[in-house]
Every structure is written in C-alpha cells, then in structure tokens.
C-alpha cells in the first residue's frame, strides 16, 4: 500500500469501560496525536473480533497487529511465572516485578515467537476465593470444596495442590453452576467477581492475594519491524505510558471493588501466619512448571530478587 498512514488494528475481550480498554483508548489518542496521524490506531473491544485465544491467532498471522489478554503464554512461556501463587504479595511488589530488568528480558525473548512487547503490566489485579460453604481461613477449609477453575493449567495444578475438587467450566456456565450448586465456589480477580455478578450467587469472600497475572502488550513483530526507527521509538514510548495508566486504573479499581464486595459478601482477610500455610501448600506448583520446562528455578529466583531490589 502506498498509503502514508500506517494502521494498527488492536482487539481485546473486555468492554469499553474496562481499564484495559480505557488504557488502549489513551494509547490511541496519544499515539495518533504524537505521530501526527502517521500511525492510526483502530481499537476493537468486547471480543467483537473473537475470544482472547482467537485474537491471539490473528495477531500471530498478522491479520491484526496487537492484543492484550490470556494468550500471553504463546508469546513467551516464562510469563507463566507471573501467575504462580504468591510470586508477589501486593501491588508494590507486582509493579516492581513488571518494571524489572527480568521482565524486560522476558519481553525481549518473545521476539523469538514473532511478538514485539514494548511493555508488560499487571492483568486486572489479585485473585480471591468465593464460595457458599464457609469462610476460607486455612488451606484445610478448601479441602473437598467443588471449585470452578478456569481451563488453564496453572489454576488446575494450583487447585489440586490445595486439595480442592476442581471442576472445569467455561465462563458462560459459571453463574448458573454457582446458583444451582453444581459447584460450591470459584476464584477470580475481584473485578470479575463484581462485573460478572458472581457475588449474587455466593456467600463468602476470602482475600489472600494468592495470585495475579501478566498483561503484556503483544504486537506482531513483522508489522513493528517495518516502522521507521523514530516511529518505533514513539510507539514504545506511548505503549509504556499506556500500560502504566492501565496498572494505575486497575490498582485504584481493586480498592473500590473490595469495598463494594464487602457490602455484599461475608469477607475475611487471611492472616499472615495462615498465608504461610498456603505458600507451603502451593510450593509443588512451582516445581510442576519447572519440571515441565516452562521456566527454570533460576528464572523464579531472578523474578523474586527483582521484587526485593
């Protein structure tokens, strides 16, 4: 095409008012303004172009140019480290991790798989457990509960380590399954527990900050390589700002969600000494993925060191 404007087609699953989409609107405004219209950003939200995994395929083949979502493992398996239980314990640690040199290396390694990743943020926030049986104080409280787990390896292995009866259900069936009692509970980011009305069909909310996830901004590498060096620099600059904005929105929202959910659900925060019991119980999860070759023990140690720096 001889056209002078370059189009960047981007898609994600979340609705327009979600922090992820909001930060991409910011990205569009800023990049179009600062590049003086040389790059045009076309955002598609609410999964109108496909689910997270379908859109991932489209970015891989170059039909679309960018996405953010659950398909990050295809950019680099090491992003799984960010999802490990208790790899970080709070927002401060989470932000230090995503801004660390370790994360920058993980971003760079994704080039091998055809992705350019200018920045990585934290996906939504921390996960929490909800259920209809009892407040979760210790790992023993989870034993034998029928818990819905997302169809992803880390959550399944994690659930098994904690002794729950894991049940895989697609998202669309979760509400009904919780309402009728096909499953007793589930775990999810607080924003999802609110947005998807899970609180309507649950009694207890237990906050442990046990896990979160990465939110790499995944761009088709071939597309990026065609940009002139000055546009590449500008693209990366705005992407870093957009991801920082996303993290800020997510962190602010999480506090609000906790407050709103506390009014709807009997909420407990797990004590530090009980958290140690959870850490101990979920250690096998680390080992499981190291043995599978997703990352090395050294990678985990470097991730942990980067937090304490």
């Amino acid at each position: 095409k001889k056209d002078t404007t370059i189009v960047f087609k981007y898609a994600n699953s979340q609705p327009e008012q979600h922090p992820r989409s909001q930060s991409m609107q910011f990205f569009k405004q800023e990049l179009e303004k600062r590049s003086q219209g040389r790059i045009q950003v076309e955002n598609y939200f609410s999964a109108v172009l496909g689910t997270e995994f379908e859109v991932q395929d489209m970015v891989a083949t170059g039909a679309l140019q960018g996405t953010r979502g659950g398909g990050f493992i295809h950019a680099n398996k090491k992003y799984y480290i960010f999802t490990l239980p208790f790899i970080v314990n709070n927002w401060d640690e989470a932000l230090r991790l995503v801004h660390s040199d370790f994360t920058k290396e993980v971003n760079l390694e994704a080039r091998k798989n055809g992705y350019h990743i200018p920045a990585c943020g934290i996906s939504q926030g921390f996960r929490a457990h909800t259920n209809n049986r009892r407040p979760i104080q210790t790992p023993d409280d989870l034993k034998g509960l029928k818990m819905r787990v997302p169809q992803q390896e880390v959550y399944i292995v994690n659930a098994q380590a904690l002794g729950v009866n894991p049940q895989e259900l697609p998202y669309s069936e979760v509400y009904m399954a919780l309402k009728t009692g096909v499953v007793d509970g589930q775990d999810n980011a607080l924003s999802n527990i609110w947005d998807y009305k899970i609180y309507e069909v649950q009694k207890y909310l237990s906050l442990s900050n046990y896990g979160t996830g990465p939110d790499p901004f995944m761009v088709n590498l071939d597309w990026y390589n065609v940009l002139s060096p000055d546009l590449q620099k500008l693209f990366d600059e705005v992407a870093v700002e957009a991801m920082a904005y996303s993290d800020q929105l997510n962190q602010e929202n999480e506090a609000i969600y906790i407050q709103k959910l506390t009014e709807k659900l009997e909420t407990n925060t797990i004590t530090p000494e009980n958290l140690d019991k959870f850490r101990k119980a979920t250690e096998p999860v680390y080992q499981y993925f190291i043995e599978k070759g997703y990352f090395s023990k050294d990678d985990v140690n470097r991730a942990k060191t980067s937090i304490s720096d």
Partner: peptide
C-alpha cells in the same frame, strides 16, 4: 428462565442475571 442468552446479555450489560 433459565436462559443461556440472558446470561450472555447480563455479562455484556453488566446486569444481574437473577
């Protein structure tokens, strides 16, 4: 009720399924 399409709508509209 129950209705699979209403669950879908509720999720997109961020409304109560019940």
């Amino acid at each position: 009720p129950p209705s699979i399409p209403m669950v879908l709508y509720a999720i997109i509209a961020e409304e109560s399924v019940g």
